[in-house]
Amino acid sequence: MSCVTFLTDEQRRRLHLAALDGSPVSTFRSPEVTESTLRRIAALGQDPRPGIRASAAAHRHAPQDLLHLLAEDPDTRVRVALARNAWVGADLLGRLAGDAAPAVRQWVAVHTSTTPAVRDRLAQDDDAQVRAVVAMVTSSR
């Protein structure tokens, strides 16, 4: 018997009552973003290991200047992480739309903050996969 199948009638009753209780189990708050948080993310962005820099590029609170710096990173994984970052703005996405790596441009194509003008440009991309992703995104919106 699994530990979960040991649920007694009493435990089931409590589970039922808990389900009726609308209060959340947590406030779901993350720590406040402080200067030291930003310094830590900036340090990650300078790390010699691409995987660590990719983490900085994907970070919710990465400073704009760092994101722009990482847009020039020599490792494609870092720039892909940047293009996948949901909090990256339209201006940086426009820049990434000209990236040499098709994988980066594909992620730009599906990003919700990409402007129609940039997406139109990607619809004419040299890479067939990029064009196909644009077509998919356009047809499903």
Partner: peptide
Amino acid sequence: YDQAVANTWFPNEV
């Protein structure tokens, strides 16, 4: 470990 620490995130950021 280093990579995991760098990856730290919180659900309400989404």
